[in-house]
């Protein structure tokens, strides 16, 4: 059995059938990428893992926890941390307070302090702006803050929903490097991306999701060569 196992998951929003028998898995230590067009069900998948939406049917298990019934705060305190689409920074709170909120479920004050320092050392731009309001940061800095907030939570499985959205190519590269570094330090990453090129560069494996189903899967390097992926997601 895989570390994270999703099997035949069905999610509905009212009558909209958003995930249709979706299945995939993630092993500890990997970076796994979900690719797919708008409305394919990528964010829904993330929301299902973090307990924001519940599947009507199927298995969602992570490291011995049944994610279909676990309370969202228990999921967070066990180390499954979801960085949502659009970053969702607390705009009028300072950078530092945003980071501290990441540690909301962490009891050990020393661990929080160490991880805040880790976030600052991975992203020195944040350290320079620690007293600034989160909402005043640039898009790239906000994305870094969102990742930093997750780092303070002590992630074992980090879910990142379109971290490159709206960022300039150079900043996308920086953000991807930070993600790869977080992974090297021991965090498993599930990455949702529209920017397939950037994502496949750091991912180990990838799945293509179309209308709520997995239609292709494989090692990232192979998918990057696959003509169906190249045509649909990597441009000409």
């Amino acid at each position: 059995m895989s570390w994270l196992e999703v099997k035949d998951a069905d999610v509905y929003y009212g009558r909209v059938h958003a995930l249709r028998e979706l299945s995939f898995d993630v092993e500890e230590g990997e970076i796994v990428c979900l690719l797919g067009n708008n409305g394919a069900g990528k964010s829904t998948t993330m929301n299902m893992l973090s307990g924001l939406v519940r599947p009507r049917a199927g298995v969602v298990r992570w490291d011995g926890t049944d994610l279909t019934t676990a309370k969202p705060w228990d999921i967070v305190s066990r180390g499954l941390i979801h960085v949502p689409e659009g970053r969702r920074i607390f705009s009028t709170m300072t950078v530092h307070d945003n980071l501290l909120l990441g540690g909301y479920t962490v009891k050990d004050q020393r661990a929080i302090a160490e991880r805040v320092e880790l976030a600052y050392s991975l992203m020195p731009r944040l350290a320079e702006r620690r007293k600034q309001q989160g909402g005043t940061l640039s898009g790239g800095e906000q994305q870094m803050l969102a990742i930093g907030r997750a780092i303070v939570a002590g992630p074992r499985l980090l879910l990142l929903d379109e971290p490159s959205m709206g960022l300039a190519p150079l900043v996308v590269k920086q953000v991807m490097e930070i993600i790869a570094e977080v992974n090297r330090q021991g965090t498993t990453v599930l990455l949702v991306e529209q920017n397939a090129r950037a994502a496949l560069r750091i991912a180990h494996r990838a799945y293509v999701v179309e209308t709520g189903r997995v239609t292709l899967q494989g090692p990232a390097a192979e998918l990057a060569q696959d003509s169906r992926v190249v045509d649909a997601y990597l441009g000409a």
Binding site: S50, L52, P72, W73, I75, V76, S77, I81, H82, P84, R88, I89, F90, S91, T92, M93, D97, L100, L101, G102, Y104, T105, R149, A153
Partner: peptide, 17 residues
């Protein structure tokens, strides 16, 4: 901090646990 966070974005606060 949690109170201020909910005031700004309840769903994001939810994701912080």
């Amino acid at each position: 901090r949690a109170m201020r966070a909910i005031a700004l974005d309840p769903q994001a606060a939810h994701l912080m646990g």
